[in-house]
Design a protein around this nucleic acid. Structure first.
Lengths: 189, 189
DNA sequence: CTTGTATTTAGTACCTGCTACTAATAATTA
DNA sequence: TAATTATTAGTAGCAGGTACTAAATACAAG
């Protein structure tokens, strides 16, 4: 029984990382009480681990879904848009997490993969807003929580307001998904 | 030409609201420079408009994203399951909200509709875990934020581990979506 | 047991971005 | 011109820190 009581430095720092990962909204004071050490110790720990202060952490959480979402002209995209040639192609990365998966099998639910593909397809279309008309998709192999999904979208044809986009998603070199979307553009003018 | 120069109180406060709506990450100091008034004036304005301080604003943005991610990403079934005959059919209801929609057009993003359909399709399958193999879907008409989506799923054929499920989504009497899914069951035994 | 090193605690000065308050000054309106 | 409204100035205090110095404590090895 060595559950309670003070931890040594290494285990405290391990716990600290976990704790702040799970909940970044904790002050040094809270942490010092939780670990039964002084505030200064917590600050030394953060310094050694390279963890920023509370306000910085909150700003990061806020910025993640904001800065990127806003900067891409209001297009909410699932995953991180890392390359984009409007009207031609685009690439996004989605880091999957345990919350996206079935807890039993650790396999990522299909709609997350679909969402990444569809939102990327929309992002590459050179139009204010796009609606999905039709899509034809195939999941080639299961995705596990933690896998990093790399989606590549390519506009293959444009006919009036209809945009034909192909999206492929890979994990490393293995293709796990492919989808054909027909998107309908709506020009707000 | 009255573009530049100081604004009067009313217009300044209108601008202030807009500005902070678009970008909440601005300090009073930044604002005081932008409007060419003292910091105290900005603070009086915020007080009158009921706008919280920078740190509080950031915290709100952070909290929103946190909740959003947890609630959208973490749910087993998208929508509310109101009827289910395992292996045969099921019905779910999804109340759409403005967050699910493009802010410009108020039209609900397709992947939310897809998610409702897919998760319902999975729920009706009489198996521990199911994966989507293929799907073929069509959005028939746009869904607006606030619309209540009623999804009906029906298992049309079972061949080994492959389950063929059709899903239709209606708003009142109008069909807005149809999808054919081939789900692959995995029995964990 | 003592010496040396690692770890922890204490304390101070300073920082940002505020709140809450008082008081004075400038601009506008009646 | 007087009254009212809007703006500016300044002070004290707060949260949640950084950055630094110095002292106390713990633990290991000779």
């Amino acid at each position: 029984m060595k559950k309670t009581g003070k931890l040594n430095k290494a285990s405290r720092q391990r716990k600290l990382l976990e704790l702040l990962e799970a909940d970044p909204f904790v002050t040094d004071e809270d942490l010092s009480e939780k670990f039964m050490v002084s505030i200064q110790t917590i600050r030394l720990d953060r310094l050694e681990l390279g963890i920023p202060e509370l306000r910085e952490r909150i700003k990061q959480v806020a910025g993640k879904n904001y800065q990127k979402v806003r900067s891409i002209v209001g297009t909410e995209i699932i995953g991180e848009l890392i390359d984009l040639s409007l009207g031609e192609r685009g690439i996004s990365i989605l880091q999957t997490t345990p919350e996206m998966a079935f807890s039993k099998t650790n396999i990522v639910r299909g709609h997350h993969i679909f969402s990444q593909a569809e939102s990327l397809a929309m992002a590459v279309i050179d139009a204010d807003v796009a609606l999905t008309g039709v899509s034809n998709i195939k999941y080639l192999s299961p995705v596990r929580a933690g896998d990093k999904l790399i989606a590549k979208a390519e506009v293959v044809r444009v006919r009036g307001n209809n945009h034909f986009v192909h999206v492929k998603i890979n994990i490393n070199q293995d293709q796990v998904f492919r989808g054909k979307f027909i998107l309908v553009a709506i020009n707000s003018k």
